[in-house]
Design a protein around this nucleic acid. Structure first.
Lengths: 213, 213
DNA sequence: CGGTGTGAAGCCTTTCACAGCA
DNA sequence: TGCTGTGAAAGGCTTCACACCG
């Protein structure tokens, strides 16, 4: 369920405030969803709440992190160290819980060897070896659009089974490989779409709404 | 409809190859969706296809770009010029069609005045004036989580009606303001979730699937 | 024939509403 | 009394299947 990470973050913040128990309503508010949804979602994990009281924050945190696989350590490779790749490499925030960037790879020979944070950029020729040796299961693609599919094919062949694609291209992967995409241009175009409708909404109603990701 | 940008990109690529006509099936393949969906989506824009032939690429491009508001020019402000903000500022790709970054804003006084690409970083105090004067309707937030809600409130008060939030925080906006979020940590956690299920999928079926954005 | 446009069926998600338990 | 857990209803999106047209 794609909302678990939202609950997880909300619970983390709650735990920091040393609140030990939380209601579905409060959790819903923090996560930006509705209370019934929270209860239904959590009920899939089992019955961790106490009627009349709410959910135990620590216990729920533990259960969700187990469910999300955050108790494990996931080595990650970033392919394509341009503007975005570099920013992602420097991003403090997934090092936090479970995700560890263990390799930076780029096709440009001039970049190879350059340090970014604590890692040095490695050549794309060695991608297969890197993925295999370091047991990488998750790859982040930040390459140009034209290279995305080829890189995806290579990392999948080398053993990667989850891809997060930042390249502005549709890529296809074999069954059994998870693929998620983050596309800046598309997000902006969607906003533009709603934006346009706001001005022309002089007469009649038409709700611009909050198009969630 | 959130798939229009996908079709748009696919059509652009098709047009570059000087193909003048395209079937729903081919377009579906390029966009990574199914053909019935393409036809249904396009039918909402009107009947632009020719039975037995397909869609006219140029005409369809024109109609979609009009629908998406890409014929307009959208001034954009980026707030928070850290790793990510800087990468976004340097990102060639939305300058391409309709989106023009006209201001970079940061709360850190030491950053103010520093050039990033063709723009200089401006202080967050002037956010209101900047948004109003430059008629900015779209704001990209790349601030730390704690600052996100406050910045959102300020840009909305100043006239912004669309926000693209990269900060790892749930923010709320008044009705009528569009909000989309891109959250790296959440994307990775979702991949982790499916990843976990792949290993434990020794017995029985359980499809990891392609969880789309 | 080939491929669009579209009713209708199917499926999945969200929401409601309330029984039941601490 | 308060809040969870959950059947049932509602709604929306996707897919099917085929009539219809160039």
């Amino acid at each position: 369920m794609a909302r678990l990470p939202l609950y997880y973050r909300a619970l983390l913040e709650t735990a920091e405030r040393e609140v030990s128990t939380i209601s579905s309503e409060r959790l819903a508010e923090l996560a930006g969803v509705n209370a019934a949804k929270v209860r239904k979602d959590l009920s899939y994990l089992g019955s961790y709440g106490t009627r009349g009281v709410g959910y135990d924050v620590e216990y729920l945190l533990h259960e969700i992190s187990r469910e999300l696989g955050l108790t494990r350590d996931w080595p990650v490779v970033i392919v394509g160290i341009g503007n975005l790749g570099r920013a992602l490499a420097n991003y403090r925030g997934f090092g936090a819980r479970g995700f560890r960037v263990v390799a930076l790879v780029d096709a440009n020979p001039e970049l190879v060897g350059h340090p970014v944070g604590e890692l040095a950029i490695e050549p794309v020729d060695e991608l297969d070896r890197i993925v295999a040796e370091r047991e990488i299961a998750i790859a982040i693609l930040a390459t140009p659009a034209v290279a995305a599919q080829e890189v995806a094919d290579r990392v999948v062949a080398a053993g990667v089974t989850s891809i997060l694609n930042f390249a502005p291209a549709v890529i296809s992967v074999p069954e059994g490989v998870s693929l998620r995409k983050v596309d800046l241009a598309i997000e902006l175009q969607i906003l533009s779409f709603y934006q346009l409708r706001k001005f022309s909404a002089a007469a009649g109603e038409s709700r611009p709404a909050e198009a969630a990701s």
